[in-house]
Nucleic acid binder design. Structure first.
Lengths: 207, 207, 207, 207
DNA sequence: AATGAATGAGGTTTCATTCAT
DNA sequence: AATGAATGAAACCTCATTCAT
């Protein structure tokens, strides 16, 4: 009666603990992933989190579950970013900014870009998660830009997304590699639409 | 001059055996790398080659040594290709063809593109090998194309090489991913030189 | 007199709950034992019962306690069977029927016969339970049959009980094994008493 | 030439070592099986043998392989025993002696009798090994005894063998259990053939 | 009294690497 | 020089059991 669904002191407390532990795990995993890559030993994550190994298995039966969970937040944010942005510029510029934000995300998570394309069994779900959440967003951006005549319309969001992801690989291991420039190059290639054919487009593109 | 380094009859014979074994190992490793990836168990390679594991370690103390050796031949061929090619087209076309040949090479070697950017200790030498052998070639091609006005001149061969390599990652695991189109996009970005600023360039570019 | 030990209304209610839970546990355990054997994970039983694991430990601190409790009912029934039976035949026939009923019991409980002779620490109590409850019964049957001249009198109930139990082992894993025939063989061996000592017995035995 | 197939010093030595190690493993496993049962940790056996765990897996990939190997010798001896014995008595007596020797074997190997009927995956091979090697022998003994009129002819060697094996279970855990007497009881049951038909047999049986 | 999250010992298995022959 | 047996560290995963709520 009284305890309806108000998180009562006792029931609520327990749930809070559990959630806190899950957060600890996610934080620890994120840290360890940065330090040792996505294949880090479970024990390492357990140690980092201060929790037991069994707890990890309870929360995330599969390594992929953990990886997906670790990054879900940021993937969500990324997916939401496109709506939040107050259309700061041309569709092409919006696209460009989002792509770089995507790259930011990948680059700051050591091993994430690599894991995205891993052939390791069990990482399909990670790949899928990204594709399902982000590809629609990117697709929308690409279509808008193409519709406005800024970019080619024959590039698939899937390919483009993976390509950007791939270009981020190795940034940390080879500090001399300038992934950003390559991403810009790819974006430039996108912009190089069948240009001078009519001559009107340029004005359209650069008003 | 040529045979000068043949020691004695017996020693020479030995050397032939050794060299034959080395070749066996390289062939076996190449086959296994295709089958199981670049991280295949040493024992697997030993079995494939018909030789003992100890022999592998004698010849190639480090896994990277073996990997480098396995691909050196093809790297050499790639490096030589640029001279051999009878300038079949514009510098940009030559560049384009070489880049795709490079991609061919990476894509057909399961796991090679990945290994190139691996952070696994011991794979720097593989990276270095590629950089040392191929970057000069690519640099030359880029410079030629830029000098002829086809492409931007502010792109470093190092970045471009790694970028192309990166774009090849995942081809086998995600068959839907069309790496070639993305490589072409990158090349297109390269071509999109500082464009309509003067208006003369276009003629220069497509004579 | 009878309800004298009911404490207070509230406490009594509690007790009812507790008893109900205990029954749930016993039912669940019985089901799980059949499904997964006597060593089934505690969690499995908890899940089956709808109760928590801690509750199991409260009621049955030791696995053996649970096992014993699960089967106590049927052990009791078996112990009682001898009185209930309206002496349907010769003492030997009564003995034989009881032995087969005992075998029925063991065979239908997956893993019970095995557990009875397990060296796993903690199963002594199971063994003891069986010995304490059933051996007296069997002893009585054996003595009656021997006294009537049907069977040897030099066989201990303890040995015989364990032997019958043992003969039931493997019935499920090796469907070709015909435990019943072997039990009958054992019973036949029992009947082969030191024969013609007096001369009257034989007629009595095989009329 | 000279090294034909004579176990040369170098080649022969290695092989000898390997064999010696295998023997060490078998001895160690036998000891550990006695001490801790047939499910003893691999590490324990490794420790006992003074060899590494990997060596065990090399020699005996499966636990069952090891178990079978440990007991093969004695199984062989048991299988051979029937021929070696200089027919010391009636067929029934020969049968009886062999059965007891079989029991000796099982009883002295802690956990063997249990393992023979284990439902643990992977022990089928142990069961099979026993059945294949020993059942024919027992079958022959049973048939001989039956043919000479000493015993019933309707008992299958398979059942009888398993029964004897079963009766040995628990000898060590329950020192009060007299398995031998039960085996004799089973044998007695076997002998109690449809006797009184002629009346001569009894004399024949107990001269 | 009940719950079930957390713990971590314990067992398994794989493979890179060494080294005696 | 070649061999491959041996080693053992590492990683995985499962549950019995405890204990805070």
């Amino acid at each position: 009666m009284s305890t309806a669904d108000t998180p009562s002191a006792s029931a609520g407390r327990k749930r809070a603990d559990v959630r806190r532990n899950e957060q600890k795990l996610l934080d620890a995993a994120a840290a360890v992933f940065v330090r040792m890559g996505i294949d880090a030993p479970v024990r390492e994550i357990a140690a980092e989190s201060g929790l037991g190994m069994g707890t990890i298995y309870r929360h995330f039966p599969t390594r992929a579950d953990l990886v997906v969970a670790v990054f879900r937040h940021q993937v969500d944010a990324l997916a939401a970013a496109v709506d939040a942005a107050p259309t700061a510029g041309t569709p092409y510029e919006v696209l460009r900014q989002w792509v770089h934000r995507f790259a930011d995300f990948l680059v700051t998570k050591h091993g994430l870009a690599e894991a995205l394309h891993s052939d390791q069994a069990g990482f399909e779900s990670l790949h899928n998660e990204f594709v399902e959440r982000l590809m629609p967003v990117l697709d929308q951006l690409l279509k808008a830009s193409a519709a406005a005549g800024y970019t080619r319309s024959d590039i698939r969001a899937y390919d483009f997304m993976l390509a950007v992801g791939n270009l981020c690989i190795g940034v940390e291991n080879f500090p001399d590699y300038q992934a950003r420039r390559m991403i810009d190059l790819l974006l430039a290639g996108l912009a190089q639409t069948a240009p001078a054919s009519t001559g009107e487009e340029p004005e359209q593109r650069r008003p």
